[in-house]
Design a protein around this nucleic acid. Structure first.
Length: 419
RNA sequence: GCGAGUGUAGCUCAGUGGUUAGAGCACCGGUUUGUGGUACCGGGGGUCGUGGGUUCAAGUCCCAUCACUCGCCCCA
């Protein structure tokens, strides 16, 4: 036997309940998105590298070290998407779908970042997300936050997360704050961690959410972004809070909450948990006005979020909707094969999930029925063929009855309907 | 990219430098030649991650390497 191959680092396979839990999250998210008028859409799994380089920020870690980038073969450089928002903006622009605004869109699918894997962090991970494009009102931010809160509630995670809210203000406010912060931090450079000294030069706002103990005090006493908001930015933030309050959505203002990606402005938020080790954020987003312009289209407002499916799955634990219980058609003799196949198709026509067992002893086939969680088994052998009927075994009660072929669908529907 | 921990059966794990490496679960068979799930009986399954070293003797100690896990960085 050849050496067993293994999955690529940071990827993994999903079977059984794990896969059902995953799908349940996607289905739930899609249905909640639909309730808010967000239409499903999909973008390619890879894009020209330019799409991400232009929008995430040249200095972001995603762009500098985490992208899976390769040559497309025709001289173009392409990248497996590390996140979903930039591709959505690109798709609206390149598809010319800017006639009907605002656009409300839902997506789900794999994302790729070349990071060291750890709990809740994979190299191929999966997100669901919504984007509201072309809506400049702070009510739009509240709408997407409400949809996110509803998703978490629907997944029974309302008590596991808290909503952290902050604002980066408009670009003028943000620039003024940035210079004030750099001035403050620069005087305390010696006291900062090595990581934060690097952040100071590249992305100073990130010093604020550093975990290093030596940085904490410096960050806590730093000038507050909220004090640097101009009138427009302050009003915007006040409106977001006002409408969240009106909806009864509770939140904490987190002055240390900043975003890693350059395109965010005004509202930023994260639903965080303390149950996933180092990875607290399960659903996060914010406002990104102007992203479509960077994609070569008109300047449009935008706001939205993405949620990590693996992280949500870790939190939802064992909670799962009941699996469909199939009927097993057991073919006991070779002569009964055609009848068994026909019988299985007939049951499927009735909408009953049906699996056909073709090999092994009856004992083996019934054991298989038990393992796949079958509700009932239809037994077909020489005796049944001759008599023109089938044995139907209720696998929960063990009761067995003889049923003419024509009555099988009704009989099995009956059994399946109670459990 | 950096740090720590862990690698023994399909899975979860015992195994004090000393006989032929074990358990539970899972799997296969039998009790039942056409009857699952429970019970009882039996069986198969191991490059002890890999390579080197120390030793009379290594799953056990040392070194290297690979993988996984967790953390840093960053982020969903």
């Amino acid at each position: 036997m050849a050496r067993a191959l293994r999955p690529v680092r940071g990827t993994h396979d999903l079977f059984g309940d794990d896969k059902r839990r995953f799908d349940h999250i996607v289905v739930t998210a899609r249905s909640i998105a639909a309730a808010y008028g967000y239409a499903p859409m999909a973008t390619p799994t890879f894009e020209f590298t330019e799409v991400f380089r232009r929008t995430l920020g040249e200095t972001s870690d995603i762009v500098t070290k985490e992208m899976y980038t390769f040559a497309s073969g025709s001289g173009e450089e392409v990248t497996l998407r590390p996140e979903g928002t930039a591709p959505v903006a690109r798709a609206l622009v390149s598809g010319g779908r800017l006639q009907v605004l605002p656009a409300r869109l839902f997506y789900d699918g794999p994302m790729f970042r070349r990071e060291r894997p750890q709990k809740g962090r994979m190299r191929q991970f999966h997100q669901v997300g919504i984007e509201l494009i072309g809506e400049p009102s702070p009510v739009g931010d509240v709408e997407v936050i409400a949809a996110g809160a509803r998703l978490l509630k629907e997944l029974d995670l309302a008590d596991s997360v808290v909503l952290r809210l902050h604002t980066l203000g408009n670009s003028a406010s943000r620039d003024r704050y940035r210079s004030a912060l750099v001035g403050y931090l620069d005087q305390r450079r010696e006291g900062l961690s090595a990581d934060s000294r690097r952040r100071l030069d590249r992305n100073p706002l990130r010093v604020l959410d550093s975990k290093a103990p030596e940085d904490r005090q410096v960050a806590n006493e730093a000038p507050r972004l909220l004090d640097f908001l101009d009138r427009e930015s302050a009003d915007f933030f006040a409106a977001v809070r006002h409408h969240l309050d009106a909806l009864g959505i509770s939140y904490e203002i987190d002055p240390m909450l900043v975003r890693g990606l350059d395109y965010y402005m005004h509202t930023t938020f994260e639903f965080v948990t303390d149950r996933l080790g180092a990875q607290g954020a399960v659903l996060a987003g914010g406002r990104y006005d102007g992203l479509t312009e960077r994609m070569g289209g008109p300047a449009l407002a935008g706001t939205g979020w993405a949620a990590g499916i693996e992280r949500l799955a870790l939190l939802t634990g064992d909670a799962l909707p009941a699996a469909t219980r199939p009927v097993l058609v057991a073919c006991i003799s070779a002569a009964a094969t055609a009848q068994a196949l026909l019988c299985a198709e007939t049951l499927r026509n009735m909408g009953l999930a049906t699996e056909l067992a073709l090999q092994g002893s009856l004992k083996r086939q019934l054991r298989h029925a038990d393992r796949i969680g079958a509700r009932a088994a239809v037994l077909l052998g020489d005796r049944e063929l001759e008599a023109g009927l089938a044995l139907v075994r209720d696998l929960d009660t063990g009761q067995q009855s003889e049923v003419p072929f024509a009555l099988l669908p009704n009989h099995l529907s009956e059994i399946s309907s109670n459990g």
